[in-house]
Design a protein around this nucleic acid. Sequence first.
DNA 1: CTGAAAGCGCTTACAG
DNA 2: CTGAAAGCGCTTACAG
Lengths: 338, 338
Amino acid sequence: MPNVRLSDVAQHAGVSTKTVSNVVHGYVHVRESTRAKVQRAIDELGYRPNLRGRNLATGRTGMIALAFPDLRIPYFAELAHVLSRAAGERGYRLLLEESGDAPDVERAMLSAQEAGVVDGVLLQPSWLNSTEIAQHRRGVPVVLLGESAAPLTLDHVRIDNIAAAAQVVEHLAALGRRRIAFLCAEESAPSETSRQRLIGYQQGLEHCGLPVDASLIVTGRVADAHSAARALGAALDDGMAPDAVFCRDDLVALGALRALGERGLRVPEDVAVTGWDDSTLASAVRPSLTCVRADEAELARRALDLLIERIEGFDGLGRHEFVAHSLVVRESAPRPAV
Amino acid sequence: MPNVRLSDVAQHAGVSTKTVSNVVHGYVHVRESTRAKVQRAIDELGYRPNLRGRNLATGRTGMIALAFPDLRIPYFAELAHVLSRAAGERGYRLLLEESGDAPDVERAMLSAQEAGVVDGVLLQPSWLNSTEIAQHRRGVPVVLLGESAAPLTLDHVRIDNIAAAAQVVEHLAALGRRRIAFLCAEESAPSETSRQRLIGYQQGLEHCGLPVDASLIVTGRVADAHSAARALGAALDDGMAPDAVFCRDDLVALGALRALGERGLRVPEDVAVTGWDDSTLASAVRPSLTCVRADEAELARRALDLLIERIEGFDGLGRHEFVAHSLVVRESAPRPAV
DNA sequence: CTGAAAGCGCTTACAG
DNA sequence: CTGAAAGCGCTTACAG
């Protein structure tokens, strides 16, 4: 029943649709008496603008798609939370899209598929490489998030993973740790994320004068506590004896806590552990996790600013930006005694 | 540049827009030669239908809003994941909306605000009571999720919290536990969720012949590990000596693990702990959590079926459905020895 | 099997 | 300050 159209209001108030539109949009140059008359008509009829009509007429939907692998990974849930809030402040709403294990979804996000349903897309790729991303681009404004290599033509916002990883190692070294394991890199075809964290890990070791020992690199499934626990457990049973474990992400760190605990190793006394992401669980678990934390608020702000500039017509080369990160020190790898 | 319209294709192919539309929709009664001709024009021009135009013409958007308090609460992230997948299978996409600490968002979701941007809404209310929900209803099809009391006029899908809570208590009792604490109910104005779990808790105790002891009920902030740890910690320091802690949700259970651990109490030997939701962290944490798990796949299926029936015109009374739940037994409250 | 035309509900130059 | 009219890109009875 509330199928009142703009034209109904116009007729009821005895004005043109243009005038009603002016009132609805709070346009200033409307005579007060006209405004009142129109407003009354709006109230009496219970008029509410139909967004579809508006979208068609303006060519905008007010929606931005956010695409990443999996909402169940705590970091992504938090990212979505922060971005959704920031988008709201800018008058946009977020449409979530999980790419899961389907490269197709990432391709679809980049193609014109999305044209008409969203004004732009924020994509954290996990399957597509730089070349593919550059090729599949077609129409919709896009900003890339995360560590994957980005083509020069697209905007890209991320934290400096290499520097952050080196910082983690330096923190562990300052704690007196000498045998710092890395848990875990993918078995084959390590992701760009793992690759960068490994580079930083190595830089950190070298910077601290520690030997780089390939036998301390454990491989396994990423972002999965159980598989990480198994992988680390197997390595420990095999004789690896680290005094610290640099974990690729918080979920992996949870797995490390389990593998260590089950073998009677105390964290941090015997083995220090670090995570990455600072998801809710990092502070909730015991021992709480020392970990790298991206400045998500800044990340959200920058990513949206860049995307909105594109939506509004900017067409220059890709901007590649870093946002701040920090090392959150907690129980699993405490601050060194002074 | 890819601003090719349906009419461009029609002109290029020398047919009417209707015919192009027929081809685009795979309508069967199109002569093969015509179809080929049109398809060629589509390919040559790189035509892609504009969703906005279609939406305006059909009155559908193919989108469903999902509104709940906070994406950072693991249960909701998992719910969104499951629903998003299920919606995709039915040809719909999910628009996420966090109500956070704003009752307004819940009201907005129920009102016609959403009309035009989504075809229907799935709402897990946390602020609005049944009366308010019933009143604010205006136009958009709605299905309610979760424990809050639902008006008779609206569809509602949930698990039987009372039965599930009683089951948890019975499990703990079977383990020989006699002093089962409840962590935690809100300080004031307990949510309907807490209320129902408390009712079930009490029913379980009575069913097992255990005394109901109000001093074993701890209050505190819900879904927050730290505040739960503090609340339980204070109670323990105050002399409360439970041999089991029934936690309202997984995050609270994490807090319980901390409070107990810090006081040298072993889980489950000294104190058993149970969670609720079976979020990723429940199985990842050590000790892993015994907890209640809703059959989320069924929940998603039913909620969407009901909503889509409404979208397609069903206008009957509210359907109120339960979906299955189970008790997942893990380390924090293991299966009783036989 | 296909076309011409109206309509979905808004916005927006262009006049006045 | 306000109006008449075209247009956004599709769909869909209605004819034929």
